[in-house]
Design a protein around this nucleic acid. Structure first.
Lengths: 322, 322
DNA sequence: CTGAAAGCGCTAACAT
DNA sequence: ATGTTAGCGCTTTCAG
């Protein structure tokens, strides 16, 4: 009916015949207490089914047992997988996960960080578009891990963007293509800028920038035809779907007349017709690494950067140059 | 650098020249305080940039300003859209959103509800597979809204499952099909059972049950061929993608030889080849309604059930019977 | 309508 | 190694 009375720390203390302070120590600082009393306390905890009151804990000690994840679009399976992985990992550390969707708008991103940070132990910010200094300020001292963005002296985990381009272009060249274009993503994205830089070095043509959506890809087909490209590497899988759609609409056969390669390897990329060749962005690995990194920050380590290697996934949207 | 000192309620009180208790009243029970003092307090709040400490608020008063959403699979865009919509709405009510992914396993679902409920004002549980009574118990008195599941005397918002079947079958029949099959979803799903019941009444053949995944759909193609069905309505879009994939693999042309109709209308369903005809499950509307309903529960209203009408989305995976 | 005082459940300094 | 004592910042009685 109503709340069954929740056992409190004092209840545990009473049952174990110790002072509440001791129970607290057992629960938060293992080792600083006698083994036998600790055991007795643990038994009492189990016996009464004690569950710590997080609000009280936060108020007294500052620890929230919550982390926040901010994503540009939870509807994009790449980020959904990251969130899922973070949530799984967090569950194991008995942390809850707050999520906010920034719709890749800097103001929303900042206000999410600002409103969430007082109530979490740390934050994971995916593909931030706001200036890193502003995000840091908004986080107000709480540790933050950046995903797919790096910066001076901040913790980050990101896919090796240079490798994404290298690997895609190498795949295409091995198929005999020499009229290759890569599609630029929005310039607010760090990843887009990184790829663009490398594409320049590789002497590969660049299309766009376009928004990383189906429509963005669809709109590209004219440029592709006009440029007589035989192969195109898109910014992400959804954009690749758009290119595929545009090709179908124009009667261009993939991969016979045009090779298309995506990026991310979202599950749906295996379900298109033809199945999409893509570069795996390792969403799960990224999510897991981000949480681990946040954990190490929380433990007092200094910021590190984790670079994740992408991987070619060859399916049927790429073929030998005609 | 470190936390810029956060203004406290006492600071506001001091600045406004009133007692802290009064500030609290102004903030939580508008109307119970003199207009002029209220205005003065509001001014002080703005002046010092006061932000309430949620932990303290929860400890003292019980309100958390958080809601939890539990989904079976955040990676499924149908649920991602619901979550996105809930988060958007929650932002407007300055509530934060906790999310947990239950992987459609009853134990995970229950433990998520149990661990989250003490720290939220209410919960939205999507497509629960655990018994409703157990979920209610796990929620320990916190209001819960069920999505796509109904039960005795509980608040719920769900798509009219009967209409999903009716609409799909009507569409197919209008195209001249009379060898129609519907695909059953897992029997733990309320929606699956509802549809199955109606399919029985409609005299439509039933395939499965299969898991609501790509693989589930893929595996169905033999049954479809063996049954000489000319049209199939799947449990959700992802399953439809599997059927599409299976058809392609067997050289069966869609829609010429087989009409396929999905359910949900996830964005990707417009991006397949051919684009999928499907029944829109109104994810955003469902998400919004769930949050509103939770709000009304929180306001003290009694549980209601909101039924959302699905809508036919005709694209190119269905055609006239051959 | 507003001031005063108590206390939510816990952690962290300080004692012992 | 454990007991003791203060609060954390807020809401909510209870007075007046």
């Amino acid at each position: 009916m109503t709340n069954r009375d929740t056992a409190t720390l004092d209840d545990v203390a009473r049952r174990a015949g110790v002072h509440p302070g001791t129970v607290s120590r057992v629960l938060t600082r293992p080792g600083r207490v006698n083994e036998k009393t600790a055991a007795r306390v643990q038994a009492a905890v189990a016996a009464v089914g004690y569950r710590p009151n997080l609000a009280a804990r936060q108020l007294a000690g500052g620890k929230t047992s919550r982390v926040a994840v901010i994503v540009p679009d939870i509807t994009n399976p790449y980020f959904a997988e990251i969130v899922q992985e973070v949530q799984l990992g967090a569950r194991d550390r008995s942390e809850a996960v707050l999520v906010a969707d920034s719709r890749q708008a800097a103001p929303d991103e900042l206000s999410a960080v600002e409103s969430l940070s007082p109530n979490v132990d740390g934050l994971i910010v995916c593909s931030p578009v706001a200036a890193l200094a502003m995000v840091r300020d908004a986080a107000d001292g709480k540790p933050v891990v950046y995903v797919n963005r790096r910066g001076r002296n901040v913790a980050a985990v990101h896919v090796d963007q240079g490798a994404v381009v290298t690997v895609a272009v190498a795949h295409l060249r091995s198929l005999g293509h020499d009229r290759i274009a890569i599609v630029r993503g929005p310039s607010a994205f760090w990843s887009a800028e990184q790829r663009s830089r490398l594409a320049g070095k590789l002497g590969v043509a660049q299309l766009g920038p376009v928004s990383p959506t189906y429509e963005g890809g669809l709109a590209l087909i004219d440029e592709i035809v006009d440029g007589a490209f035989t192969a195109v590497a898109t910014f992400n899988d959804v954009t690749a779907f758009g290119v595929l759609g545009g090709a179908t609409a124009r009667g261009i056969r993939v991969p016979d007349e045009l090779s298309v390669i995506g990026s991310d390897n979202i599950p749906f990329s295996a379900m298109t017709n033809p199945p999409l060749t893509t570069v795996d962005g390792r969403a799960r690995q990224v999510g897991r690494a981000a949480l681990d990194l946040l954990g190490s920050l929380l433990a007092g380590d200094s910021p590190r950067v984790v670079v994740v290697d992408p991987a070619m996934v060859t399916r049927s949207s790429t073929g030998v140059a005609s």
